[in-house]
Write a protein that binds this DNA or RNA. Structure first.
Lengths: 206, 206, 206, 206
DNA sequence: GATGAATGAGAGTTCATTCAT
DNA sequence: TATGAATGAACTCTCATTCAT
């Protein structure tokens, strides 16, 4: 799965993987600055450290690059979120720990996250659906946590809502920096969001 | 303010205003379908009902159109939000009423809202800042409401946070339709968000 | 029919016609020198006397140019052949007159004819079929003449064969110059071909 | 002669010959489908069964491949024509036999012949002249036959004309299939062409 | 001898913008 | 004011050819 679906004329699977990481890294840097549409394939090639011809040995169209980028970021975020959940799995107040870890993760991958949310919509339906599936899965992780760690039974609809709220509040930290950063550090942001989350969920932990 | 800053070679102020409304309407229709970058000025002219030459009598660059569109939408949303606040100003549980009205407004202007949030980032810094100022003002309206109607004194930081949360939950209804619509109608969405909002704010109203 | 099927973004029909004649003329000149594939659209634009952008206001793809060229040449050859037939319609030995006129016509349009036969095959099936239909019609004119002016009844199969032979002997004069021109002038070529044609058809005229 | 003039970095003469046969076979297959210009060297390498690198060990440019192909086909046609002439050399009505054999040969090598005539023009002058020399030689064979087997003395000019006509009528069977095949089988085509040829030449044989 | 990754000139095409009418 | 033909910079993508392994 993942990159596999994008054809490359180069046979060496390892090399393909390496080159694609270079492409992704370069593309994120550039998309961050000027967005997908204003970034040219030549610029991506140059930033990747090879020629335009070489770039096209590893992708077929410019859209492929966008897909690679979005897919890679979603995959990373999701993987890191999974790791966190696995680790925290037995602590008390796991909910808070995971939400905190999620917000930290977003902060850490800030640039990537911004790029991703700005550009997924430029993917054509098929690729977009594929990528958004991962978002669905992340929200589902939050739902699963709510079911598991809440001291009472939450309805499915409410779990869906709260999970989405958490998810979006994470994005918000990436996206609305320009508005939030005057008053919040990551730490205060997490702390206050958790405060209200616990109140909303009537969880009394720490 | 607003359009005034964009130069037009046509002198008749009224005509300028009329034509620009046509342009904005046409552009929103098209941006909704294909986004700003994939829409051509020719298409906008055609959809507006006049020639490409005429289009350029009322704007100077393609970016101007984007600015016109974003500015117009923000302005509308903001104006409608102000109206709502004015109207509801004396009811008990004004908070709920306004939030509800805001969510309904977003639902009503769904297409415009999506277009706006997808494309503001394509504006160059200066125009973007100008437009985002309106977003700041909207958030401030929510903050003002919290100060005014909450039965206790909320800290500025918390007001900022909650106002942003409300604001973003509105956007969320416009943006995350693909994820939410299986389980929510506008009514249930509003109802459940308000439920959690009240719990978080420890407001016990209805 | 003809050009009509190729879309142009320019509205003025007369202008379209005029510009396309320029394009056709330029393209023939260039195709003659280097063939379709080795000629660039930029070169065609330049030779046409306008910019690359303007070229693309009158055609959509490079293939369109090839179609325009082939179609135009076939149309001309066919039209001139029809005129000749009309004019000669009552003379005795009309057959010889028409064949002679046809050979002269080929000689006159030598460059065009060579270009046409070299490049039709590069058209995609649909366009090619459309153009070749005109060749079919020309052969049919010869067949019609054989039926009408031969002093005996020729079978359909034989009419088909002889008509094709005449047609191809015309092309041959355009195509095989490199081989024929050492020994033939147009006049001697026509004279000897007609000599053998009459013998083959057992027509004794002049 | 022949391939010898095309340089190869590989020393083993036999291997060169073997590889080139592979290349020629692959190229004909591909040129038949998409023509010379639309076929890439990579495709030729793949179809030949080796890598692009290896391909370039046996040729220097893409044009070399075209030359190899054209030359090889001309050589084959010519060789087979010579064999036929040798064999039939003593029969009465040799003329008919050879012409018949020539038409059958064309039918047999139809694909190759079509490829060849479509693409020779893409060779650069020098190579083209080299290849066309073989065509000259074939026409000369027909001329020689006319001198030898006609019961009267034919002028050189007429011999040239008739030889070319025969030659072109052969090509015609390869090239104008789309027009001829509704009414002719190879057999009827040969039979009717011979019928008219004999009448034209006033040969009364069978 | 064989391989295939790398190269980059160059091709076709688009589209924001201008300006004469 | 309105029009739309003209422009050309800029973009994506291809492919013949090379060369280190």
């Amino acid at each position: 799965m993942t990159n596999k679906q994008i054809l490359s004329s180069v046979k060496d699977r390892q090399l393909v993987e390496k080159r694609r990481q270079q492409i992704i890294k370069a593309a994120i840097t550039l998309f961050k600055q000027k967005g997908f549409h204003r970034t040219t394939t030549r610029e991506i090639a140059k930033q990747s450290g090879f020629s335009i011809g070489t770039l096209y040995e590893y992708i077929r169209t410019k859209e492929d690059i966008l897909f690679l980028v979005c897919d890679s970021i979603y995959e990373q975020v999701k993987r890191r979120l999974e790791e966190v959940i696995q680790l925290q799995a037995s602590t008390e107040d796991t909910l808070s720990h995971v939400v905190r870890a999620y917000f930290e993760l977003i902060d850490d991958m800030q640039d990537e996250v911004v790029v991703m949310y700005q550009e997924v919509k430029s993917l054509k339906k098929e690729s977009r659906d594929y990528v958004l599936q991962k978002e669905r899965e992340m929200v589902d992780m939050f739902k699963a946590m709510l079911y598991k760690y809440l001291p009472y039974k939450i309805s499915e609809v409410d779990a869906e809502l709260v999970a989405n709220n958490i998810f979006v509040q994470g994005q918000m930290w990436g996206f609305r920096r320009w508005m939030l950063q005057k008053q919040f550090t990551l730490e205060t942001y997490i702390e206050r969001q958790l405060y209200y989350l616990r109140k909303a969920l009537a969880v009394k932990v720490p």
